[in-house]
Write a protein that binds this DNA or RNA. Structure first.
Lengths: 226, 226
DNA sequence: ACTTAGCAGATTGTCGACAATTATAATTTA
DNA sequence: TAAATTATAATTGTCGACAATCTGCTAAGT
């Protein structure tokens, strides 16, 4: 399991509840569009409303719920428009991350990333199509590049604010399936560009990579919706 | 005064306190880098710690404070690295906003924006160098384009999460001064590109516009720092 | 003299209860 | 019968107090 980049030791009740609700929403256990009842959730997770509200504030921050004053909170509803908006930003920012990573990543980090990618590739060949490892590997790849950008705000936006929502789309729309081997090739090409300190190329390749992923999801979404 | 785009009627004590603390931090009344004392602020604004903590959560969201569990919150410290990180993202996302605006803005909205720009230009010529109107006009321009993108997350990131921090840099580094008339010309060119539905050009022009602004600030920062 | 252990003070995290607002349902009226 | 209105119930926002944790200082030990 890959954990949140900004790690505030998860000892507080608020952190624990946040993690549990995040998972529940992403997994659809708390349905999209449903209303959030503070007393109910407080009972369910055995905490007072104070840490629960703290958790809700952070859930709003990563766009998993929407709150209106004096009226409560609702889990976000998934839509094709929302998905497109999300990917529009992701494409742009992950491209930027690549450009910055090509500039700021240490050689050591790049070598590490290469080693890890090969390792994931081997695991992948063994467990063909096992979606968990695939996703974990993919995530690790993207995370490392984003962190390699050394841009605090970029890291925060992509890994804290948009990540869980993307995960929610993937999980609830059943985005397992193939597009694995090609993704691996694309990953390798991107790393190569970063290793060559070719930020522009890495940017371009990453945009295409994300764009392909988006296309893949949109098609799957169309087949589903109608 | 231009108010936050997502307007949650500011009746709650939390909203009121949030607005006051935001202003105090941006203006430097609560110094950058200083520690936040919950009891002290609660007394100062005559509220309990509950709404104050709600406000602190939102201040963390717009990067004006940094919290560590069980250790309290500090006002962020300004740095050239932070400023650069901020502008790297702003450049990218405002460029994206232009591209999307060229695609999604209604003719009516574009016409409105043009009218408003001319009006601001007149006001500008009358009150030569009056920084408030200048900034208000500049802000209005950028806001309209960002909203024109019709991308919820983009709007949220730029107008809610990064705006106040940029404002803090501008205010505390004393970014008044000229670069006015040229900025107006750049604004006109960007609007023209959007009116022509030329997203790529609008993107390019906006990136240059933001980049020029960043350059301008960095120079002023260098002259100051040493 | 410097490091380390322990203690006092203050601060943050959490709790339960109350007040203000909103949503729901029953009731009345056109 | 349908719309408007009032009353009730539930939910959210806020408060003050208690418990857990951290910070800074004192004091003992090497």
């Amino acid at each position: 399991m890959i954990q949140s980049p900004v790690w505030r030791s998860p000892i507080t009740a608020s952190d624990r509840v946040l993690a549990e609700i995040q998972q529940a929403i992403v997994a659809g256990e708390i349905p999209a569009g449903s209303k959030i009842s503070e007393p109910e959730l407080a009972r369910r997770f055995a905490v007072s409303r104070a840490p629960l509200r703290e958790a809700l504030a952070r859930l709003e921050r990563c766009h998993l719920i929407e709150r209106t004053p004096n009226a409560g909170a609702r889990v976000v509803t998934l839509s094709t428009a929302g998905l497109r908006s999300l990917y529009e930003i992701r494409e742009e920012l992950e491209g930027l991350a690549c450009r910055l990573a090509a500039e700021h990543m240490a050689d050591e980090e790049i070598a590490d990333m290469r080693r890890l990618l090969d390792q994931h590739l081997q695991e992948q060949r063994v467990r063909e199509g096992e979606s968990y490892y695939q996703e974990a590997g993919d995530l690790d790849f993207h995370y490392r590049i984003i962190f390699g950008s050394k841009n605090q705000y970029l890291i925060n936006i992509l890994c804290d604010e948009l990540y869980y929502l993307m995960r929610m789309y993937r999980v609830q729309l059943g985005m397992n399936g193939p597009r694995v081997s090609r993704a691996f090739d694309e990953h390798k090409a991107i790393i190569q560009a970063i290793a060559n300190r070719d930020g522009e190329l890495a940017d371009l390749l990453m945009r295409r990579h994300v764009s392909a992923s988006r296309h893949h999801i949109e098609i799957q979404l169309q087949q589903m919706g109608k």
